[in-house]
Design a protein around this nucleic acid. Structure first.
Lengths: 162, 162
DNA sequence: CTTGACTCTGTAGTCACTCAAGGGTTTCTA
DNA sequence: TAGAAACCCTTGAGTGACTACAGAGTCAAG
């Protein structure tokens, strides 16, 4: 099958597949006469595995480890357990952070129940003063907006809120 | 004061300040004879405001809106309320996703209580099969576009579903 | 033979920073 | 007063996991 069909079967889009290939997550496929990538059932399996892991918010590096174990069935899978435990820890931690965040935001929201002019907006007022700081992210699980910058915090950035 | 002191006072690091300047969040400061940036109290205020908003996981674009309102005190602050409501919505949604995620991960973890060889690892087994969707498709917008969807939230991007 | 769907490579953009190279300036110390 | 250390400057590249686009080639159907 060609890349479009693989994409449909695995629920990915085409660029992502090529990206995974470049990144070494998918093996380099054979090519047709016209230089099209040709895939088989094993590719569908592997790509689906990757997408399933991604849907659990695992990083590509974590997935790389799992793929390694899938391919070395004789090895002890304690590392798989450890990886998952760590990941569960990340998720739990991020949830706590988000709960605290939600609390602060609702707090903030209550300060300006109805529209007035910005000069008397309780929200802007509060943001202009110090808010009790919450320890910043230390997990790779995405923040409220799910963008990748949060992950930088996961990699050893130790916050600096004094 | 010079950039280093501003950084200390606001609990940021120096590169971040220069980044905010490039990005238009901080006004261009005056310079010393030796071409050093020179800041005053207003810069401390503004930078602290930005960092406080960032600690609430707001995007720089959201913060830009808030800064605008801080500088136009006569305007009605209904937009501030709307912005915050939307942001609270993002956080709430992300929390729900993480709760579902946590459930799935714990599920998964239970399948391999102790270390064996990878060939019989229940975790790898499960990841190799479809995971019961349990209605996640509706809220998680999963499969192909799950994570792009998060990014869309951040910018109001109207998806393409090609 | 053309149209349109699909595919190819390569490059750049996203977000919010962070880091490093290679230099200049200022301040402290001997 | 010399020199070292600490600070600052600009520029450019890197992060994660993609997404988007340009400009070209391939292929099947009408």
């Amino acid at each position: 099958m060609k890349i479009g069909e693989l994409a449909r079967l695995a629920g990915t889009n085409v660029e992502t597949i090529r990206y995974y290939e470049r990144d070494g997550l998918l093996p380099i496929p054979s090519r047709s006469e016209g230089n099209y990538r040709i895939y088989g059932e094993t590719h569908v399996q592997r790509l689906s595995f990757i997408r399933r892991c991604r849907s659990l918010d695992m990083t590509l590096d974590e997935i790389r480890v799992l793929l390694h174990f899938k391919e070395s069935p004789q090895e002890n899978c304690a590392d798989v357990n450890r990886l998952l435990d760590r990941h569960i820890g990340h998720v739990a931690q991020r949830m706590q952070e988000l709960q605290e965040l939600e609390r602060q935001l609702n707090d903030l929201r209550e300060r300006c129940g109805e529209a007035r002019d910005a000069a008397h907006c309780g929200i802007l007022d509060s943001l202009s003063q110090a808010i009790a700081p919450s320890g910043k992210t230390a997990s790779h699980v995405l923040g409220a907006h799910g963008h990748a910058a949060n992950r930088r915090l996961a990699k050893g950035y130790q916050g600096n809120q004094g």
